[in-house]
């Protein structure tokens, strides 16, 4: 993936238009990732509006739990969770992943329900 024109790629994969965002911050206030994220969802949307490709490297996109609270509440009807997913997908398709089996503590690995592994790897691993 080239960074040139990355916003059009994000728009295509997410089928969402970040330019509709009016920066109200409802998504950030509702976000599960608050406290762990540097850029909150509102700021992610702003970076996309400005075409700043550093958003692709934002650790925040990997803190998302795809809980869809932001999506449920956005007054502009933007499916923000899809935008966050598109930012991950663009990374994952280049092999940039954050969840690696070897890094999961054994104590957790042996106890977590299977769905934690399948969902985590689907969202966070290439």
């Amino acid at each position: 993936m080239v960074k040139d024109g990355f916003t059009s790629k994000i728009k295509e994969i997410s089928e969402q238009n970040p330019n509709l965002c009016m920066q109200c911050g409802t998504c950030s206030a509702s976000c599960t990732g608050i406290g762990a994220m540097e850029e909150l969802p509102r700021q992610v949307m702003r970076l996309l509006q400005l075409g700043k490709d550093k958003v692709l490297e934002s650790p925040s996109i990997w803190m998302c739990t795809t809980c869809l609270t932001c999506t449920a509440r956005c007054p502009r009807g933007i499916d923000i969770a899809r935008v966050m997913e598109a930012l991950r997908v663009v990374n994952l398709r280049q092999g940039n992943e954050v969840l690696v089996l070897e890094d999961i503590p054994l104590e957790l690995l042996t106890e977590v329900p299977q769905m934690a592994l399948t969902s985590g790897f689907r969202k966070l691993s290439a």
């Binding site: 990732g33 762990a36 809980c67 999961i104 977590v112 934690a116 966070l124």
Partner: peptide, 19 residues
């Protein structure tokens, strides 16, 4: 209907503890 942190338990454990 809030989120418990979900699969982040394997990656961002402290966030899940907080939730």
């Amino acid at each position: 209907t809030t989120c418990c942190g979900s699969y982040q338990v394997m990656k961002t454990y402290d966030l899940v503890v907080k939730k």
